[in-house]
């Protein structure tokens, strides 16, 4: 297995491919990731997402990639009973997440204690998508953040591009990954599950039989606003960073967008709401870690999850 690392989307990207000459494979995948980042970032005025947000209230033509991601996001919004909601951007900004996370950490001392969020926008379900004509209309006041789901979507697309040239490959975008085939001589992929209480340690090794793995954590992207600790997982029901006993949730699913959005939704829903979320989504399973280091799992353990200490 050959590996290639680079940085994009404000996170570390690891590409893996079973190939004797992987340079071309890696180059294609990296180019795709970097181009997609330019399209879906909310931190650049020139991105397609920024143009979409500026157009709120009016119809705007979008690229096939943007159209596809918005349709996937809408599907995940419904599948998570609205807990995954890309339209929480005004709440996220009110909590202080107004610039890329690297810059946010540099200037966290400048954050005002609480920005005025203004009137509550519509949920994401109010978006209008005209697939035939490739155009979209956000309701007036709606602002969309595609950060997490875009990362999963990009990882999966990049992995499929690599799979055109290799039998086994994987893309890991800061912990959100999509895996195809198996490494040579192995029956599954080894994925280390990071301990959210101490990120330099691993809790366990997960043996994953391909597909998507994604983790949401309230620890990683967190900052201090005034004197309040904030994180990036907004509960759309309150408009505030979610209060949850779990520190991280790792989800296994056949699609990266599904894994990413369910990781977020299950973490926000917590132990009381996780079962309900899984009722109509049998292909999703999860592992959660709480502040005491206790492990919580899906009610029905799926075959994709195996572990040893």
């Amino acid at each position: 297995m050959q590996f290639h690392r680079f940085r994009a989307m404000n996170t570390a990207i690891l590409l893996a491919a079973e190939s004797k000459q992987p340079e071309q494979v890696f180059e294609t995948a990296q180019k795709f990731v970097e181009q997609s980042e330019q399209r879906f970032t909310r931190f650049k005025e020139t991105s397609e997402l920024s143009a979409l947000n500026r157009s709120a209230g009016n119809w705007i033509s979008v690229s096939p990639e943007m159209l596809d991601l918005l349709l996937v996001a809408l599907e995940c919004h419904h599948a998570t009973n609205g807990i995954f909601d890309p339209a929480i951007l005004p709440d996220l900004q009110a909590a202080g997440y107004t610039k890329s996370f690297d810059q946010l950490l540099e200037h966290s001392a400048d954050l005002s204690p609480k920005l005025n969020r203004g009137s509550r926008s519509n949920p994401f379900a109010a978006i209008e998508i005209d697939s035939l004509q490739g155009r979209v209309r956000l309701p007036k006041g709606m602002q969309v953040d595609l950060g997490g789901i875009a990362k999963g979507w990009i990882a999966e697309r990049a992995a499929h591009k690599m799979a055109e040239h290799t039998s086994a490959c994987g893309v890991n975008a800061g912990g959100d990954m999509f895996l195809i085939g198996h490494p040579q001589g192995r029956e599954n992929w080894e994925v280390a599950l990071e301990d959210p209480r101490n990120p330099i340690q691993d809790l366990m090794i997960l043996l994953v039989d391909g597909g998507a793995v994604a983790t949401s954590s309230v620890i990683k992207r967190s900052w201090i606003q005034g004197e309040i600790k904030r994180h990036h997982l907004i509960d759309p029901r309150t408009g505030e960073p979610a209060e949850t006993p779990w520190l991280s949730v790792t989800v296994f699913a056949p699609k990266a967008a599904l894994a990413e959005t369910f990781a977020k939704a299950i973490l926000i829903a917590g132990p009381d709401g996780a079962d309900t979320l899984l009722d109509n989504n049998s292909e999703v399973s999860f592992i959660a870690v709480d502040a005491d280091g206790q492990i919580w799992k899906s009610p029905v353990e799926k075959e994709v999850i195996h572990e040893y200490a």
Binding site: T11, L14, N172
Partner: peptide, 23 residues
């Protein structure tokens, strides 16, 4: 600096492994 973090990076350099923990 955190000594263990550096150690971890060096370990990863020689044996990359898929790792998940959120971002």
């Amino acid at each position: 600096f955190t000594v263990n973090t550096v150690t971890s990076q060096i370990q990863n350099l020689f044996s990359p492994r898929m790792r998940t923990g959120g971002s």
